[in-house]
Amino acid sequence: MATRQTHMLGRILIAPSVLLLFIWMIVPLVMTIYFSVLHYDLLNPGVHDFIGFENYYYFLTDPAFLASLKNTLVLVGSVLIITVVLGTLVALLMDQPVIGRNFVRLMVIAPFFVMPTVSALVWKNLLMHPVSGFFAWIATSLGFRPIDWFAQAPLFSIILIVAWQWLPFATLILLTALQSLDEEQKEAAEMDGAHAFSTFFYITLPHLARPITVVILIETIFLLSVFAEIFVTTGGGPGLQTTNIAFLIYSQALIQYDVGGASAGGLVAVVIANIVAIILVRLVGKNLET
């Protein structure tokens, strides 16, 4: 009797959250699906003809889609590699006996708290400017010709900025995981004559496998939607060189006013993200029990 009451109460307490999230997810998604089969152009109001899968056909065969899919994959992949590899190295370094480690931690984590528009503009102007930027000064001092970052390597510039923002995240999580590693196990291995190298590969790295997976999956979800950094620096250009899927859909919707096409593109983005999401939910789900 008491349990039934508790269950009833429980349902009432959970209901608002479930209802709101359901509306938040289902209403726009259904609308996106609906728009995606219409010829719907904001510049041509009143015309909402049903055209079936034509929008999908145009979106998927548009060379811009392939270009932006490639850019998305390069961006996500490069940032993942940079953050996981450097993050592991920095975390290992900070796990050593370091005087003033807490202060170093503060410096390392700081970039994560900087809003994307600030980090993008500070990097683009103060650091990467081809004439007066800090990097240009370093290059000239060392006798090299300064790189015109956003003209010569636009996508790489975006990758650098985004990697700087996410490196602290990877480092912090991997450091937390390292600190939970049993010291005795490592010491026993060292007593048995294991080199630092083999201790790393046989004890530390297997221990880091799960946190690294978590970092990869969470970062992937956010990196698939990188937007502000592109919006304030390159606007997707030059040409399509820095347009990712998110930015392509944005420009189709709010610059070209092609509601139908952007909706079809949006659903493609949802499908791509879902493939990643399924893997993540499974992984995090396992941790629920522990």
């Binding site: 726009p28 998604l29 609308m31 996106t32 939607s225 998110a246 944005y250 952007a262 993200a273």
Partner: peptide, 16 residues
């Protein structure tokens, strides 16, 4: 609930 967070915002940009 967690899975709703995985939906890319750009997927619902147009209707919102």
């Amino acid at each position: 609930m967690l899975s709703t967070k995985m939906m890319p915002p750009v997927g619902v940009l147009v209707p919102i």
